[in-house]
């Protein structure tokens, strides 16, 4: 009898994807930690006395959740997308595609591994950041939910990009022209309340804004949007992306010509 869900197969793929980034842990987890520390050092020096975004919240503290989320966004995306494009280019993806793993099992394994990387990176940045400035955790549920959901979103986006892309340059373009602008324009370095009304309005259509704002709410208990709205928007984004991604995997779009 053949089980309806190949859990051992999916577990194996998850373990493999985790081992893949742990083998180059310096590049995948430590590097983002160092980048974030550099940001903190620079901004802490330059901005320390100038801005206080929310009452009683130092700018450096304000910055940390944004930096954590930026690292999560970049790393979760990189994990799935680079794994896929690499095995497409090397040709060894066929060795996975010919196994009895279903689309859902592959999806869960890839997303699970990327999610883990996102969480590890966030934790790493957190650990070094609290040496600089004390950080409250007013609503841990919001921080945790948005951490997981945002990791998930970017992991799924990474699968989609990895399926569509034919070479590394395509991924880089996706990252430079889509993910970077959207995450920079979502309030990592500022509150959107400091933006002109038009741009403030536009930000409300950027799902990355809700990832960062909701995540930040988890620490300070204040934000530009309601944390429930953030959770709802990011959940919706995750579901929509997952449906698209699973449909691609299921129909074999680009992977099974």
């Amino acid at each position: 009898m053949i089980a309806a869900f190949n859990s051992y197969g999916a577990w194996t793929l998850l373990r493999k994807e985790v081992r893949r980034f742990m083998k180059v842990v310096g590049q995948t987890v430590l590097a983002p930690m160092i980048t974030s520390v550099l940001y903190l050092l620079v901004f802490d020096q330059v901005m320390r006395d100038r801005v206080e975004v929310y009452d009683g919240v130092a700018y450096t503290a304000f910055l940390i959740p944004g930096l954590m989320m930026m690292s999560v966004i970049q790393n979760a995306f990189a994990n799935t997308s680079s794994s896929l494009i690499q095995s497409k280019i090397m040709g060894n993806l066929v060795l996975l595609l010919m196994t009895p793993l279903s689309s859902l099992e592959m999806f869960l394994a890839f997303v699970g591994a990327a999610l883990l990387r996102g969480v590890l990176v966030a934790a790493g940045v957190y650990v070094v950041a609290i040496f600089f400035v004390p950080l409250p955790l007013e609503a841990a549920w919001a921080a945790l939910l948005l951490l997981v959901l945002s990791s998930g979103c970017l992991a799924v986006l990474g699968i989609i990009a990895g399926i569509v892309a034919d070479k590394f340059e395509h991924l880089a373009a996706f990252q430079n022209f889509f993910i970077m602008p959207l995450s920079f324009l979502s309030g990592v370095f500022y509150s959107i309340h400091s933006l002109p009304p038009f741009w403030r309005e536009v930000s409300h259509y950027n799902p990355f804004f809700y990832m960062i704002d909701g995540f930040r709410y988890g620490f300070f208990g204040v934000g530009d949007a309601s944390p429930l709205l953030s959770v709802a928007v990011v959940s919706g984004f995750f579901l929509a992306l997952s449906v698209i991604c699973l449909a691609m995997l299921h129909t074999g779009y680009k992977l099974r010509p």
Partner: peptide, 10 residues
């Protein structure tokens, strides 16, 4: 071993 795992073999 990984390949075997995808087929459910431990």
């Amino acid at each position: 071993r990984l390949q075997a795992g995808y087929y459910g073999c431990g």
